[in-house]
Simulated assay, not measured.
Amino acid sequence: MQEELHELFPARTALVPLAVLWLLSVIGILFFGGVTLRSLCGSLFSAVLLWLSYLDLRDGMLYDVITLPFAVFGFVPVLAGLLSLREALIGGTLCGVLFYCLYIAARDGLGGGDVKLAATLGVWLGWESALIAVWIAFMLGGIAAVFLLATGRKKRRDGIPFGPFLAAGGYVAFVAGAQIWQLYWGGVL
């Protein structure tokens, strides 16, 4: 059991880069949002996203033992009055169903951990910002896939961990999702 838990944590060599990335993410949250309760939630949010990204890159897995409690903690912004329960439930359901359909259609091209992380992002962000997160994740993932294929680093059937792209999209959506949503819909209407 202790060995299994040990595998969930980053190697010592990864701790400093992860800590630096986390500090930079917190600075970004504080810069755009100020020192608020939401920023405190964002600090936890970004730390877990970095942790999951690291594990997905290292192991090709998003572990339920982290993702499921992370989803439950997604209701902290609801309890703090930062997000309505309705928004969190719609976001979690929308992203979960969308990714579950993709999971079925992709036939091993998308993992169950990605489905759970997408649903978790929906809970944390609400449906509007979660859609922004998913859109950004697919854009970044597509760009990375084209680059890796063009440079020969990956072949067509090789897998690419999608968790880091979901994490990046989730972070951007946490910091500026409402503004991006307003910019898009404000410009369209």
Rank of each mutant, 00 (worst) to 15 (best):
T67H: 05
A145K: 06
C41R: 00
V146W: 08
E128L: 03
L94M: 13
D108E: 14
I90D: 10
G113L: 03
A168G: 05
G169F: 06
G152C: 06
R157S: 12
V65F: 09
G28Q: 07
C101L: 15
A11P: 06
I29E: 02
G187P: 07
L40M: 12
F31T: 08
A133R: 00
D59M: 13
T67N: 09
G159F: 14
R58H: 14
I104W: 06
L149T: 00
V76N: 00
L24H: 02
G142C: 04
F73D: 01
Y63N: 09
G81C: 09
L52A: 08
K116T: 08
L15I: 15
I104E: 02
Y100K: 04
L79S: 08
I29S: 03
F174P: 00
E4C: 05
T151N: 04
V16P: 00
L140S: 08
Q2P: 01
L121C: 01
G170A: 08
E4N: 12
G141M: 11
V48C: 10
L183D: 08
V134Y: 02
A137C: 07
A19C: 14
G81M: 07
G92W: 15
R12S: 14
T120A: 13
W127R: 03
S43Q: 07
A168R: 05
V97R: 05
C41K: 01
G81N: 10
W127N: 04
V78M: 05
V26Q: 01
F165R: 02
D114I: 15
E4Q: 14
V35L: 12
G152V: 10
W124M: 03
L23T: 06
L85K: 03
G28S: 12
L40R: 06
L37V: 15
Y184D: 02
L8N: 11
L110D: 12
P10V: 15
S46H: 10
V16K: 04
P10R: 12
L15V: 15
Q179N: 09
V16C: 02
G33Y: 01
Y103P: 04
D158V: 15
I132T: 02
W181E: 07
L49S: 02
K155L: 06
V78K: 01
L57I: 08
L125Q: 00
V134S: 00
F75N: 03
F45A: 07
G126N: 07
M139N: 03
A118S: 13
E4D: 13
V20W: 10
G142A: 07
D56F: 07
S25V: 07
I104R: 03
V78Y: 02
G81V: 09
R38K: 14
E7A: 13
A176R: 06
V123L: 06
R107H: 11
F165D: 01
